[in-house]
């Protein structure tokens, strides 16, 4: 279970204090999969960073009762100057996993070929995402946080990652952000909309998407 109790996140930028999340409370239970909709800059990535614990809330309390992945997305969890393999070794070590097994899994899963031994700086965005995805699957978390990256890779890779994520979702939890309605529908049962610093939950992804689209068209007028 993941619990948010009255959580506020304020970013202190040069000349403004941006209140990204305003007093939100919710719980995510094991077995739940939630698709989060929200405009650019609404705070989707911030939400995932708080869930994962890599950033702390300004106010409020967050509890994690299961192992939670880092937000798997384009924002890099890798050191660019190191090779993909060295990054994998590092991550395996900090999570207390066998280095060889993790590396073998990633080698097989991410299909980077000899690029695995090149610096991550030389990777395309898609390759880095595949690597991030592969390592996180190898670590085997209870809860996966996926930030916009399911659209990477070719069709074959997409099918593969979809299968992998679905399998984990059935055992654990999944929180996903995406601008693509199909992606959210494909992976998630519940939906949520992040708007104006608050997070509203809906029973289905479709409901959430509808509300989100309504809010967006409101802005356009």
């Amino acid at each position: 279970m993941i619990l948010f109790d009255d959580v506020t996140k304020v970013y202190h930028l040069r000349n403004l204090n941006k209140r990204v999340l305003n007093r939100i409370s919710f719980t995510i239970k094991r077995g739940e999969s939630i698709g989060v909709c929200g405009a650019n800059g609404a705070g989707k990535s911030t939400l995932l960073r708080l869930i994962s614990g890599v950033e702390r809330p300004t106010e409020g309390r967050i509890e994690r009762g299961m192992s939670v992945s880092w937000p798997i997305g384009f924002a890099s969890c890798f050191i660019f100057s190191l090779s993909g393999a060295d990054n994998v070794r590092f991550i395996a070590r900090i999570y207390g996993r066998s280095v060889e097994e993790t590396l073998a899994f990633v080698e097989d899963y991410a299909e980077l070929g000899s690029y695995l031994y090149q610096p991550v700086a030389t990777y395309s965005a898609g390759m880095a995402a595949r690597l991030a995805f592969g390592v996180s699957l190898a670590i085997d978390f209870d809860c996966y946080l996926v930030d916009e990256i399911t659209a990477v890779g070719d069709e074959r890779f997409r099918v593969k990652s979809e299968e992998a994520l679905r399998a984990r979702r059935d055992r654990g939890s999944l929180v996903m952000t995406s601008h693509s309605a199909e992606t959210l529908r494909a992976y998630c049962q519940r939906g949520a909309v992040l708007y104006g610093g608050t997070l509203a939950f809906y029973d289905t992804v479709d409901e959430a998407i509808e509300v989100h689209n309504g809010l967006q068209s409101l802005h356009r007028e």
Partner: peptide
């Protein structure tokens, strides 16, 4: 500077 990716893992 070069190390924020390290902090992308909660336990670091």
């Amino acid at each position: 500077h070069g190390n924020t990716p390290l902090l992308y893992h909660r336990q670091v």
